[in-house]
């Protein structure tokens, strides 16, 4: 530890005397009188540069996150089964596998887990895939058709949807516009309002913007055309607005 020095060393004395001489020659003797450098002892403190308390050096060992393989190679999985939990992408989803929000690899098809490399796809990545036959190898050759399974069963449609089919049988190419049937017959059958509407981009049934724009025209609403520079109309409107606001304020109290 460094201790503060009590007396000023001899070299400070020498330097100040020199400065006295120099400043006197320029004519600034007064400044030296006011700030006598020599009378201050040299004090300083050395602060800690490395924090020792608080949360700095703690947290060395938290609870384990239970990462790693949940299914081993060639183990049977069904869709949705988690195969590997990881931080970051140690493994990538390959055939019939998907990757979750936290990079978890899960199965998309029922089958057997395969851990493999695919140098043609990526030279360094490791993949996890699911195959239908246990003895199938991954990766498949680049130019061979993918192995796919239908995983569906054929059923006969419900009678309700079959009735709908009968209605649609007569439609031809000229009816195609992405719009649901807007014929007057629909109203008679008691279809809801949304049945007549168009399915828009956001998966909702709504009128298209041009139809909404025509609403006023259809219901015969007339709006006075805006006349720029018409101060009389502007004054009337603003006084009406002010009166309305005043009334509203009065109601609030």
């Amino acid at each position: 530890m460094l201790l503060p020095r009590l007396g000023s060393p001899s070299w400070t004395l020498i330097s100040t005397s020199r400065r006295h001489a120099a400043s006197a020659s320029i004519g600034h003797g007064l400044l030296n009188h006011l700030c006598p450098v020599t009378k201050h002892p040299l004090f300083f403190v050395r602060h800690a540069t490395h924090k020792a308390q608080g949360s700095v050096n703690g947290g060395k060992d938290g609870p384990g996150k239970r990462l790693g393989a949940k299914k081993s190679g060639e183990q049977y999985v069904i869709p949705g089964n988690i195969i590997f939990r990881q931080r970051g992408t140690l493994w990538f989803p390959g055939e019939n596998c998907g990757m979750g929000r936290d990079h978890t690899i899960y199965a998309k098809e029922a089958g057997y887990v395969k851990y493999y490399l695919d140098p043609e796809k990526h030279p360094k990545r490791k993949y996890i895939g699911v195959v239908y036959e246990r003895d199938q190898k991954l990766p498949l050759p680049r130019n061979s058709a993918r192995r796919r399974r239908l995983s569906l069963v054929a059923t006969v449609m419900s009678e309700e949807s079959q009735e709908k089919l009968e209605d649609n049988l007569t439609m031809s190419a000229s009816d195609v516009s992405g719009v649901r049937q807007q014929s007057s017959g629909n109203d008679a059958k008691g279809l809801g309002r949304h049945e007549q509407l168009e399915m828009s981009r956001g998966y909702m049934y709504r009128e298209s913007n041009w139809q909404i724009g025509r609403t006023a025209e259809k219901s015969g609403v007339k709006v006075k055309p805006f006349k720029p520079g018409d101060r009389w109309a502007a004054w009337r409107k603003s006084t009406a607005r002010k009166a309305r606001n005043a009334e509203r304020r009065g109601m609030r109290r």
Partner: peptide, 21 residues
């Protein structure tokens, strides 16, 4: 909605089949 009609006109069976998971 037009597929059933297309299948009928083309003489293809199976318009009332629905695939389910």
């Amino acid at each position: 909605e037009g597929t059933a009609g297309v299948m009928k006109r083309a003489g293809v069976e199976g318009a009332n089949v629905e695939f389910k998971r």
